[in-house]
């Protein structure tokens, strides 16, 4: 793990604050300042817009506490992959556009003055897909948190395994689950926050294994996407299929939390889970 002593969000995050923001659900328009102040939750309909990893960190970490991990760690094009475009070109473009080396940003932070490992997926970076570099950065973040005896919080927004890295992407499911054991053996909590969308290989590995699982309202969550299910089975999809609320009603998610309540809820959870010195969990570790 290499920690950068200072983290300043790229100008791209500032750019999210200029110009009007139009809700993708109800099309109502908000000023940039209003939208940012309301954490990109639509003031008219409550829809939670997808936000960048940098914006997510800004919303959750105590100001000035985020220290980014593994700044230079990038993946590569193992398969020489070409679909309709070269994968290397897609990667380069995403890196510049999203100001990230790959689809996840991780680091040490404080939430409500409690030190945590914090990771956020970036859906704008190739659909937040799980690549070798994303898997590695996530595994290292988990390990760094365990090493520092900190709880780990991950906000996932990911379409699943990245096709362009083939079977290497598939194996990241195993890698991240293997890394999570480091937290478990030190009796440290993993809080998994599911944002829109959390699908495929991401929810079928680390994201489903949170000691506590929270989800933002109306996030799409599931193994197979609705369109593929319909094409494969011709089944009628029930109302609200694969939303956070759907899974919460079936006992798969602990709480559906409005983004504006996410920081207070995380703070409370972390406070309740913080072990005092000499506590049984710490002496057992």
């Amino acid at each position: 793990m290499s920690a950068s002593p200072t983290y300043s969000p790229p100008k791209a995050v500032a750019a999210e604050k200029s110009g009007a923001v139009v809700c993708a659900v109800c099309s109502s328009s908000q000023s940039a300042g209003e939208a940012a102040a309301n954490l990109y939750v639509c003031l008219a309909c409550g829809a939670h817009a997808r936000i960048s990893a940098h914006e997510r960190i800004r919303q959750l970490a105590d100001p000035g506490t985020f220290k980014v991990w593994d700044v230079g760690l990038e993946g590569s094009d193992r398969l020489g992959f070409f679909d309709t475009r070269a994968y290397v070109d897609r990667l380069d473009e995403a890196r510049i556009r999203q100001h990230l080396p790959d689809a996840i940003l991780s680091g040490a932070a404080q939430i409500g003055a409690i030190p945590v490992g914090l990771a956020a997926f970036d859906f704008g970076f190739l659909g937040g897909s799980l690549s070798t570099a994303v898997g590695e950065r996530l595994a290292r973040a988990i390990e760094a948190s365990a090493e520092a005896r900190m709880p780990f919080v991950c906000v996932t927004s990911s379409g699943g395994a990245r096709m362009q890295e083939g079977v290497f992407s598939l194996m990241q499911m195993a890698k991240t689950v293997a890394a999570l054991h480091g937290l478990a053996e030190r009796h440290l909590p993993f809080i998994s926050v599911l944002a829109d969308p959390t699908m495929g290989g991401s929810i079928a590995s680390f994201a489903a294994l949170g000691d506590v699982i929270l989800a933002e309202p109306k996030a799409m969550i599931g193994f197979t996407g609705a369109r593929v299910i319909t094409q494969a089975t011709y089944e009628q999809l029930p109302a609200g299929f694969q939303t956070s609320e759907f899974h919460h009603a079936r006992g798969l998610i602990d709480q559906v939390v409005d983004r504006r309540e996410l920081r207070p809820v995380l703070t409370q959870l972390l406070r309740v889970l913080s072990a005092p010195a000499g506590d049984i969990e710490q002496s057992a570790a």
Binding site: M173, A174, V177, L180, G200, I203, A204, S205, F206, A207, A208, L209, I221, G222, F223, T224, V228, I229, A232, T233, E235, Q236, L237, P238, F241, Q242, F246, H247, R250, L252
Partner: peptide
Amino acid sequence: PGVAAEERGQAWAIAQTLE
């Protein structure tokens, strides 16, 4: 890839089996 599988936690079942 079916509705009933998703309703009963397909992703969770796979993740727990990996573990």
